[in-house]
Design a protein around this nucleic acid. Structure first.
Ligand SMILES: [Mn+2]
Ligand SMILES: [Mn+2]
Ligand SMILES: [Zn+2]
Ligand SMILES: [Zn+2]
Lengths: 136, 136
DNA sequence: TTGTATATTGCAACGATGTTGCAAAAACAA
DNA sequence: TTGTTTTTGCAACATCGTTGCAATATACAA
């Protein structure tokens, strides 16, 4: 059990009120959060500071972007292996078409893929949509 | 060989100057185009009219959205099977990390995927990034 | 071809959002 | 505690998505 304060220090991020609050949100929710989501949870925070908080978290390897079909940018917690100079977030994302909750699926391997040889494949981004446990 | 004018009529879209120009762009380019891309090709067009043109094309089944990792919305031509009440655009998208060109890959089937049974899978969105023929 | 119903355009306007600069405040390390 | 460095909160600006509306263009029937 690692506290958000310890986690910030480990990533060389100064512990401030908003950073602890935002990181706690991610730790408690276990799903991807949009800037809007966060603003609803933390209504009295300055939007520019929140913008910079998310940027810092992304730069330092605490969170990664989650692209979804509605083109709303969300963020989710990174695994421990991400750091300020290396992100390692190759996994499937699942988006519920009903409740719109978006989660990282860590325990299903990405499929192998063979493209025509004119393409050099470097990375896969796979978002699955459907119904989550609560909505189906 | 179907002209852009015929294609618009077939989708019950009135043929206007900007619609013909935009559709021709897609027909000539064979890759996904962002609103910015289109504005560069058609510099004298009103941005609101372009916005509505793309919305109409999407609604009527002429183009579909292409999500990419940089979160820039692009559009690409639909196959003939798309119409105003049904989009059928399940295919892989490829984005070159060097030139940023994004293309639809129609002739490679989407991989099969098995998720834990708490999820009901409805749709896959797969974007592959790497180097295109010209850039590798 | 012409007239009319209907759809589209161009512009103003507004809100939401991303981004930067800067001075005041806070965090950190000695 | 003190000095240095980072962060915050606010103003400011650009960009973008979106809607309303009056003028204009399109389609089609007469
Ligand atoms: Mn993830
Ligand atoms: Mn496509
Ligand atoms: Zn759900
Ligand atoms: Zn390329």
């Amino acid at each position: 059990m690692v506290s958000s304060t310890q986690q910030l220090s480990a990533h060389k991020i100064r512990t401030t009120e908003i950073r602890i609050a935002v990181l706690n949100l991610f730790l408690e929710n276990k799903q991807a959060l949009s800037k809007q989501d966060i603003e609803q949870f933390l209504p009295n925070q300055d939007r520019i500071t929140l913008y910079r908080t998310l940027k810092t978290f992304e730069d330092k390897g605490l969170i990664h972007r989650v692209i979804n079909s509605s083109n709303i940018l969300k963020y989710a917690l990174c695994s421990d292996s991400c750091s300020h100079d290396y992100h390692n977030d190759q996994h499937i994302h699942f988006e519920c078409t009903n409740c719109r909750q978006t989660t990282c699926i860590e325990n299903v391997p990405l499929p192998k893929l063979t493209l025509p040889k004119e393409y050099l494949v470097q990375n896969l981004e796979l978002t699955v949509s459907g119904l989550c446990k609560d909505c189906k």
